[in-house]
Nucleic acid binder design. Structure first.
Length: 193
DNA sequence: AGGAAGATCTACT
DNA sequence: GTAGATCTTCCTA
């Protein structure tokens, strides 16, 4: 298992979002290790993307999107913490929102963090996975390309699956391009369409 | 002070 | 499956 390096993130966010599918997100929580396979992600750009946090230019709360790739960018929407990874070509602006994972390790702890019955409800949405993995603002800015940090993304097993795309979920004004990517027929995907 | 925001939960048809 | 209440920052007036 190899941690993805910053070169992986130094590309068009749409490519990064697509290539993150099937990779493993690891969360170290004290002595425990939780992990999940990424099955859904969306790309966001800068000033040309009205749905992006970075749309109105650099501000204190969005500055991570303008900075070095490979750090996590966390913010709250409707009472949910959402996990993004900063990704863009050199000197660009952008990030990838992680929208859903399939639980791999630490499922019992995830169940404690989230009080739900069905397994699939544990992590099938951007706000749900952060709750299951205990990800909050506290981790904002963490560099996920370094070992020993509380978050990392590693290569998954080599596997074949079909990648589907759609428009982004819940955004007020979307771009014409389809910027949401998800693993075909995976039951942890937040919405089908 | 007020409202928008990459959502979620609950309670229905 | 859909509608409505509610979640908590951070921005704009």
């Amino acid at each position: 298992m190899h941690i993805l390096q910053s070169l992986f993130y130094e590309r068009d966010p749409a490519l990064v979002a697509k290539d993150l599918l099937g990779k493993i997100l690891i969360r170290k929580l004290g002595l425990e290790v939780l992990s999940g396979k990424i099955v859904e992600a969306e790309a966001y750009y800068g000033g040309e993307d009205p749905a992006s946090r970075a749309y109105k230019g650099i501000k204190n709360y969005n500055r991570l999107m303008f900075m070095d790739v490979g750090r996590v960018f966390i913010y709250m929407v409707h009472g949910n913490w959402l996990l993004n990874i900063v990704a863009h070509p050199k000197d660009g602006v952008g990030a990838v929102l992680i929208r859903a994972v399939e639980p791999v390790k630490g499922i019992e702890i995830m169940r404690k963090n989230r009080n739900v019955g069905r397994l699939r409800d544990l992590t099938n949405g951007p706000g749900k996975l952060t709750e299951a993995l205990a990800i909050t603002k506290e981790l904002n800015g963490v560099d996920i390309t370094k070992r020993n940090n509380k978050l990392a993304v590693v290569n998954g097993e080599r596997q074949r699956f079909k990648i589907c795309s759609s428009h982004r979920i819940g955004v007020k004004t979307d771009l014409p391009r389809k910027l949401r990517f998800f693993v075909n027929r995976n039951k942890f995907v937040s919405k089908f369409s």
